[in-house]
Nucleic acid binder design. Structure first.
Lengths: 317, 317
DNA sequence: ATGAAAGCGCTAACAG
DNA sequence: CTGTTAGCGCTTTCAT
């Protein structure tokens, strides 16, 4: 390549990186590059510079629409800045997650956007090597890193309030695992709204499930077995609401027969002519925000860690 | 690292790659690695070996549920084989696509799974450098590469047949762009089913849209403006069906008032108590199949190019 | 089984 | 502005 253009490798490098090179040599290089279909090796550049233009997106499951949109947001910002995104599905499995974080290190990735599998994911190895990490949705605890989240309590409160306003009084809550902060936050919002309305949250009506379809299914079934079943339910995530809806459909008590409010939207389902209150999450915005924070860190910003809390929006039907 | 273990770099490499090394030295190396939190540099290895354990997944849009599932399938197979997946959204833009293909080359990626933005995507640069490419859904024409597709005609036929069996006679078809083979294939299936039933496909009832939500919306609106509007519609992809359903909902003629059959499913929408015929696509299976083909090629398989046609499955409601 | 040495393709420092 | 040089961290002969 350098030979064909009759210049030194350094000059080729300079041309490819838009540095100052005489027009004449620059032209020779570009012509030679064209003639040889030359593609600069990112690998070699990464090895030399000790960092790549790749970021890892570590999430539980791309098939969860929330993470799908988030991923799209991340990819948009990344690609506009010349970065690529490696998709890492963890299925909430700490081992898978750890493996991906190791790969991020070994591949000199520029940074990581992480929806942690749990509260105690370990990103210390990355931090120590100066690789920025931004937490989305939920954070690994014990690390002083940027985070982008939503107002879980406020969302839970708003959803429950909508149910109250629709005239429901015996309102259940299906939330995620007890030890996950997003789950407890949303449940707190539920309890808060009830209390504010002069009602006492019934512990029987609060169910901790697994944030997946089958969790919602099972919890909803259990609620309906209760001596005094609820007349409305706040389901604290999108996937569980699918399971809950399945059960309601089976028993022929779909909304409005049963009041339903969901935290997190399901794309395309709004089509359905069912009166469901949805607390919509700005998933894509979370993604773009996180990606922008990460890029700032990659570019050397070292101000104290920031947590950005995005607002959810109640979209009633 | 090699120093701490008191061995040569070559021995470290051998240990990390599971080659024959005396137990004693092997132990020393592993201990030193542990002590230093050593992570082998994939970058250096890639530079040396001239190929990485990364594959590019180039698709129009991860937010299309079809590609979401496909991506999940790809990632599953890839990660099980020790590969990572770079997510590339093209938005059907040839320039974006070309840029990503260039990156795949520059990063020494092991291979590419491509849902081409159009019929004339150019993968020659990859092929020439011996990087395998597997086409999914639709293929770049003029290249002799592996492909994984679905039976578009059969699916279109089955969907239309279901509508006929439900008693509909004036059945429209909303398909994709005229120059996209998946679009014409599905439309052919529609026409074929009508003909087989002794009906003549009415050209007015065949609409070429853009495979996106707004395309379905507009086409459906136009159909309803017709002097003799259809009493049923076959919509040839999932996104357009969302637009079509929106229009039907606005006018209060949701199924069963209007017959509806869709090629491609929308996850979670099956919940909806609407009688819609869905030709379900094995999106995840397409992804796993494509990934497996690609891995075979990466591992040196050089048999003639294969095209695997997967069956769609009619799921009526 | 092990070490020495070369080199993958690039870029940063230095000298001119 | 440009060339020379060294070296990023690994793998792979080639000897031993």
């Amino acid at each position: 390549m350098a030979r064909l253009a009759g210049v030194s490798p350094a000059t080729v490098s300079r041309v490819m990186n838009g540095m100052n090179v005489s027009p004449e040599r620059s032209k020779r290089v570009r012509e030679a590059a064209e003639a040889l279909s030359f593609r600069p090796s990112r690998t070699a550049r990464t090895l030399r510079r000790q960092n790549s233009e790749v970021i890892a997106l570590v999430i539980p499951d791309i098939e969860n629409p929330f993470f799908t949109s988030l991923a799209r947001g991340v990819e948009d910002v990344a690609q506009a800045a010349g970065y690529s995104v490696v998709l890492c599905n963890t299925d909430e499995d700490h081992d898978k997650e750890a493996k991906y974080l190791d790969i991020a290190i070994g591949a000199n990735m520029a940074g990581v956007i992480l929806a942690a599998a749990g509260d105690h994911s370990d990103v210390s190895e990355l931090i120590e090597r100066g690789r920025p990490v931004v937490a989305v949705d939920r954070g690994p605890h014990g690390f002083d890193i940027d985070a982008v989240t939503v107002d879980n309590r406020a969302g839970g409160r708003a959803a429950t309030k909508a149910l109250l306003e629709a005239g429901h009084r015996r309102i259940a809550c299906i939330t995620g695992p007890k030890d996950v902060e997003t789950a407890t936050g949303r449940a707190d919002g539920w309890a808060g709204a009830l209390t504010a309305a002069g009602l006492t949250p019934d512990p029987d009506l609060l169910r901790y499930a697994n944030f997946r379809v089958d969790g919602g299914e099972q919890a909803m079934a259990e609620l309906l077995e209760l001596p005094e079943p609820p007349d409305a339910v706040f389901v604290a995530n999108n996937l569980m609401s699918v399971g809950a809806l399945q059960v309601l459909a089976e028993r022929g008590i779909l909304p409005p027969a049963t009041g339903l409010a969901i935290f997190g939207d399901l794309p395309f389902v709004p089509l359905v002519p069912l009166p469901i209150t949805v607390v919509a999450l700005p998933a894509r915005l979370i993604g773009t925000t996180a990606a922008n924070l990460l890029l700032e860190r990659i570019n050397g910003d070292d101000q104290p860690a920031r947590t950005i809390v995005l607002r959810s929006r109640v979209a009633p039907r």
